[in-house]
């Protein structure tokens, strides 16, 4: 793998910081009632998200799941319309009709999150089918969790994209829990090894807190897909720091007390900050970068707060392309 430029690495840190700051703010806003419903944060998983999204090109597609604020942010989506969507405002990226569970920003290839676990996986395969049929060189990536890895549709999709050599990457974010359920109690064997049954590469990134390791694994899969050599399954081992869903007060008692502490020692943002400092940047620069990201999130919140609520009629459009409610 060719060495990454300094600017590229700074951008990685910038995007990881953005996800952290955005999700920390969203968590607070939910608890204060400033965001309706709930949100699922990617706090702790930023390296896994950014390592993957930055390995994709601007025109590449991706689909996400319920824990998917980070995916569009990682792909370069502006924060204001995302925050407005979380608040249900008119300026939201989905006009206030999707919310946290259904963010989508087609401008950056984000074809949408799914609140149904596993359900968006074949959508990414379909985007890869378009590339294949139309002779484009775009690839598609499906983000899903260790819980979703036990949905049958993943295996239908791996099989079908295997026989058709589709340019798709199945990226399992193994944060080791599906809500309260430890992955090892419901998962027979190793997720990445399941790829072998379909004759496609299966890769396990053991250190999913290392953004460069994730980037390298995903870049290899992207290059392979672009060469027309077909799909790859990548399992990234990571950890979520917060509860499953903010504000639901589900607690985290199902996790051993010292487990989170151990993972906090491998905070991807701290690790990469140290990497950047070891490679010529100063702590002051890093502090300034972090402060600038907090300011960006402040701006996004201000953008959202300034937006009006959607007009009531908005609930009744966008069902069909050619007619309104009650077709």
């Amino acid at each position: 793998m060719e060495a990454l430029s300094d600017e590229f690495k700074l951008e990685m840190q910038r995007r990881m910081l953005r996800i952290r700051a955005f999700d920390e703010r969203a968590s607070k806003m939910v608890k204060r009632g400033h965001i309706p419903g709930t949100v699922h944060t990617s706090i702790g998983q930023e390296a896994q998200v950014v390592g993957a999204t930055m390995a994709l090109g601007d025109n590449d597609y991706m689909t996400g799941n319920h824990r998917s604020h980070g995916h569009p942010i990682g792909k370069g989506s502006p924060l204001g319309p995302l925050m407005a969507e979380l608040q249900g405002k008119a300026a939201g990226v989905c006009k206030g009709k999707g919310g946290s569970l259904h963010l989508a920003d087609f401008n950056v290839g984000s074809l949408g999150e799914s609140g149904i676990v596993g359900s968006s996986i074949p959508i990414a395969m379909g985007a890869a089918l378009s590339s294949s049929v139309l002779g484009r060189d775009t690839v598609a990536l499906a983000f899903f969790g260790d819980g979703a890895a036990n949905q049958g549709v993943l295996y239908e999709s791996m099989n079908m994209s295997g026989v058709w050599n589709l340019p798709v990457i199945f990226l399992c974010e193994n944060n080791q829990y599906a809500l309260s359920t430890p992955a090892h109690t419901v998962t027979s064997g190793v997720i990445s090894e399941r790829a072998a049954g379909f004759g496609i590469p299966g890769v396990r990134v053991e250190d999913g807190q290392d953004v460069l390791a994730v980037y390298e694994a995903v870049s290899t899969a992207v290059a392979r897909a672009r060469r027309g050599e077909g799909p790859t399954l990548i399992e990234v081992v990571t950890y979520r720091y917060n509860e499953h869903s903010e504000g639901l007060r589900l607690g985290t008692d199902y996790r051993p007390a010292d487990e989170r502490e151990a993972w906090l020692q491998k905070d991807p943002l701290v690790l990469f900050r140290e990497h950047l400092i070891a490679n010529g940047h100063t702590a002051e620069e890093m502090d300034a970068l972090e402060a600038s990201i907090v300011a960006e999130v402040d701006e996004a919140v201000a953008f959202s707060e300034a937006s009006p609520w959607p007009d009531a009629s908005v609930a009744f459009d966008d069902l069909y392309t050619d007619s309104e409610y009650a077709a």
Partner: peptide
């Protein structure tokens, strides 16, 4: 069937 319908949906969203 689940994979087929999902693939068709994703394909329809991206140009087919």
């Amino acid at each position: 069937e689940e994979g087929i319908v999902g693939a068709a949906a994703g394909a329809a969203m991206t140009g087919l």
